[in-house]
Design a protein around this nucleic acid. Structure first.
Lengths: 364, 364
DNA sequence: ATAAACCATTAGAGCGCTCTAATACAATGC
DNA sequence: GCATTGTATTAGAGCGCTCTAATGGTTTAT
């Protein structure tokens, strides 16, 4: 409870917050052994009420607070899961983390969060930090690490990739069927009568590959294989600006867009409004993730839902399973996405099947 | 690098990730002392190139990874700052954290993030965890802890409250002048000719008090002191529903709303649209925080900007100062907010001072 | 040649805790 | 009364590292 700057002796321990009363101090004050204090602190049933009381009192009087670092070192367990989040500003990840935290808490695990800042290098550093802190497992949420990175990591500690596409072959994964999600989006647009459907690609984001191929297969099933048109964009609102400008400059602009995620879609919506294009009047737009922003009435974005909370919980379950089973075949959990139809999609202007232009079927 | 399940001996160390090669192992393999390995790992200049090379090679071959836990215990320094975030899903906090991380990295500090889930009890737990982990300082971003909590914490470790109003008298704080921000909002609305300006209050959120009193003083300066009208709402989109319904049921509904934050404003926007009210035609609306959602063209929310990145950086600077100076008078940094006028504010229907009419004009 | 100064290396204590095994002591059974 | 069982307590090693002080070896100054 007390801070006691006066007690600072060596400059090694000069740092505030270290240099606090230890178990030894409590033991001395309560006139018992250090071991007994340890038992009390861990709620052991084999301590007499009398001693328990006096230990607790001594602890209170000294403002004793167990040193987790020392405890971890001694018991060789951290009871901690590291969660690497690709981008703290994307609400989608926040929701997944909520699920992870809930499930982790249920199993007595602490969760440590590190921010990847949408940068593979920084993510690798974060993972290294987790490893050095000896987390018992980690969840990489939307991480951009490639297979060689994760292979190395996977050998050092159990590790689950979340919402990171299906690229990773050697690691446990939890995710939505991104491919199917993209197909749902395309099917929906095709059913409305769109043919010139362009995909705004997620770039380096790990789920991008799957969604792209889902888009392609969706287009093919709809008989639009020839019209596949993929434009590199990104995963942030800002990333939409250029692509949209480029698309609108076309002689024969698309009537529908399928964006990598909601943020990108929101950016697209912005730019389309700038250009005076009506949505869905002139262009239909579908996002991905079903984050709260897509639900905002004024965006009312048609999008693909991912069951974020369930994913988060499943991550921890997977981690725990791996922890108890030891190494084996990679576990993969693939949850089903759902199309959420809102107000940014509708039939193309002039009704269905008005053949969209002549040539212009370039793939990027 | 290697995982070696076979090496698991006692079940104490059965946990994957612990039970890895230690400095001792490296020393043995490189045929030097443990102390030398330590020097190499810390880039000491007083090691011969020859030894350095062989140590590094041995470390590589064994897949050695320093145990941060042991190192921290030994050197009695964690080099870590704990960051408690009130709500990971609110992008405002994510932006502040970005600033914190940037500045912390510049000074060789690690950042640990814990989630408060908008709940004072869970926040207190998180703080306790930080303390037990012996973080060297912590930033409580938007935390809901009260003065007695923070007083206790402040004694145990340096601690900066960020974006938490000016309620906390004994602790260092970094924040925006919430009061002034609210005044700016009210001044803007009053200048447009609004008189029936209602404040949607932030409830338990810590900045709520300041913004409320800023609203009040703004109203008074505008000669609208008699029309002060504060409705408890919250800080999330969902929290807006009821209040808006209640307000619209009024005989004489307000012509302008000043919401506690952008999320609440977004929720209000939703509900107003449901009710067929035009914004800003029938009702003007101002938010707070200038998160990216307010910038989305389709919301285009007039709001009050907080310099999030600067705040984040300032937090770390403050923490470091406190760390080197020891206890003294609380440091308070108050940054200036700015009004960002977008499209949700305009003159009241029928020009100034005309009581909000009956005819509802739908937006979109 | 001897002392002084310097350098690379190491021994070993210590960080604050946990946990096993040992100990002391009371209660029980025969 | 003595072994037996059980319960409450403690001694002490150990977790993986850092850091001070000591060591041995080489170079430089005297």
């Amino acid at each position: 409870m007390v801070y006691r700057p006066g007690r600072v002796l060596s400059n090694r321990a000069a740092v505030i917050g270290m240099n606090r009363p230890t178990m030894e101090d409590v033991a001395e004050r309560a006139r018992v052994s250090r071991a007994l204090v340890s038992l009390v602190m861990n709620d052991s049933p084999q301590v007499s009420d009398e001693k328990r009381r006096s230990v607790l009192q001594a602890a209170r009087e000294l403002g004793y607070r167990p040193n987790l670092i020392a405890r971890i070192l001694a018991q060789q367990r951290t009871h901690t899961i590291g969660v690497l989040v690709d981008d703290l500003r994307n609400p989608f990840f926040g929701e997944v983390v909520d699920g992870i935290e809930a499930e982790a808490a249920d199993h007595g695990f602490r969760v440590l969060i590190l921010n990847g800042h949408r940068d593979a290098r920084r993510e690798a550093e974060a993972v290294e930090t987790f490893l050095q802190l000896r987390v018992e497992g980690m969840a990489l949420v939307g991480a951009r690490l490639d297979d060689s990175d994760t292979a190395r990591v996977g050998l050092a500690a159990p590790c689950v990739m979340v919402a990171s596409g299906a690229v990773h072959t050697g690691v446990d994964t939890v995710g939505t069927d991104d491919r199917r999600g993209a197909e749902l989006a395309v099917e929906h647009l095709a059913a409305l009568g769109h043919t010139r459907i362009v995909h705004l690609d997620g770039g380096t984001n790990v789920s991008a590959g799957e969604r792209r191929s889902g888009y392609e297969s969706g287009m093919r099933s709809a008989g639009l294989g020839d019209l596949v048109d993929i434009r590199p964009a990104g995963d942030d609102e800002a990333d939409a600006l250029e692509v949209i400008d480029e698309l609108l400059a076309d002689d024969d602009p698309p009537t529908a867009l399928f964006a990598f995620n909601d943020l990108l879609a929101a950016g697209a919506l912005n730019r389309l409004a700038d250009a005076g294009m009506a949505v869905p009047g002139d262009v239909s737009l579908v996002g991905f993730d079903n984050t709260f922003i897509s639900a905002l009435r004024h965006l009312s974005l048609t999008t693909v839902n991912q069951p974020t909370l369930a994913m988060g919980r499943l991550v921890v379950a997977t981690l725990l399973q791996r922890l108890s089973d030891g190494p084996s075949e990679p576990i993969r959990h693939t949850l089903q996405p759902e199309l959420v139809v809102r107000s940014t999609t509708g039939p193309p202007r002039g009704g269905a099947n008005t053949v969209a232009g002549t040539a212009k079927t370039a793939m990027r």
